[in-house]
């Protein structure tokens, strides 16, 4: 792919803290290489802002290789930008051309309050995991890897669900700010494996209860979450969770 340089205009959401009203600010960015990543482009802008004695744009990032789920930008009306099954850190500037204007917003949901600029508080996801996203294991020596037989199909489906990195793009994309794709991936991942069976029922009930408590909306099966998921988590998991939850609720005391 041919290398080129570009000048862009960024419209970025700036908000000092959770109580600040916030608003958009425009920044011209010059001499951006098509081989830079999106976050490197922001780094360049931030270096300039720091040089000018201004506050740099706060944004979440960690591994910068698409596996941690930290980066969370809503770019031009789509979580993680225009590419399919991609995280913001893996979005590269070859997706843009000279003269483009890019609008960057934080994830929007009551359950994800803005901490600063583009950083939102996603600890609601941690509390959902704490409510049931675990399994019981015996302490002592590690069990032999193949001691427990798992059907190949189920292992594959569980692995596909386990690919969820908890970035919250599903919530950001959903018109109801529903976290059901995230919760269903976590529940499916463990429900499909024998290791997850002791807490199978309480897990579905408790994780959904915690999700509701955190203020996420109800799922209406629009499919927007699946379309933006960087890990391609299928909404079939949501249907599986619906069954897990309903059956667990029906047989519970």
């Amino acid at each position: 792919m041919e290398h080129y340089m570009m000048n862009l205009t960024l419209k970025v959401w700036r908000q000092k803290n959770a109580n600040d009203k916030g608003g958009f600010e425009s920044y011209p960015v010059k001499n951006i290489s098509s081989e830079m990543s999106f976050l490197e482009m922001i780094d360049v802008l931030n270096e300039e802002l720091i040089r000018d004695g201004k506050d740099p744009i706060a944004f979440d990032h960690d591994c910068r290789e698409g596996i941690c789920g930290a980066c969370s930008m809503y770019i031009d009306g789509r979580p993680h930008g225009p590419w399919e099954q991609n995280t913001t850190c893996q979005l590269h500037m070859r997706a843009y051309k000279d003269g483009d204007t890019i609008t960057i917003e934080p994830w929007r949901a009551n359950a994800f309050p803005v901490i600063k600029d583009l950083i939102v508080d996603r600890s609601a996801f941690d509390r959902i995991i704490q409510a049931g996203g675990y399994i019981s294991v015996n302490t002592g020596n590690a069990v032999d890897a193949n001691a427990m037989p798992v059907e190949k199909d189920k292992a594959d489906a569980a692995f596909a669900a386990a690919a969820c990195i908890g970035c919250g793009a599903c919530v950001a994309a959903c018109k109801n700010s529903s976290a059901l794709l995230f919760v269903s991936a976590k529940v499916s991942h463990l429900a499909l494996l024998p290791q997850g069976s002791p807490e199978r029922k309480s897990r579905a009930l408790n994780m959904v209860a915690q999700m509701d408590k955190e203020g996420f909306g109800a799922c209406t099966n629009t499919g927007a979450c699946e379309a933006v998921c960087p890990k391609g988590i299928s909404i079939t998991n949501i249907a599986r969770l619906n069954a897990e939850f309903s059956l667990a609720a029906l047989v519970s005391q």
């Binding site: 419209k11 958009f24 031009d76 009306g77 917003e105 929007r108 994309a173 018109k175 629009t222 499919g223």
Partner: peptide, 11 residues
């Protein structure tokens, strides 16, 4: 959002 997601991903 300032830029709506619209039909990117849902009908």
């Amino acid at each position: 959002y300032a830029v709506a997601m619209g039909s990117k991903g849902s009908k």
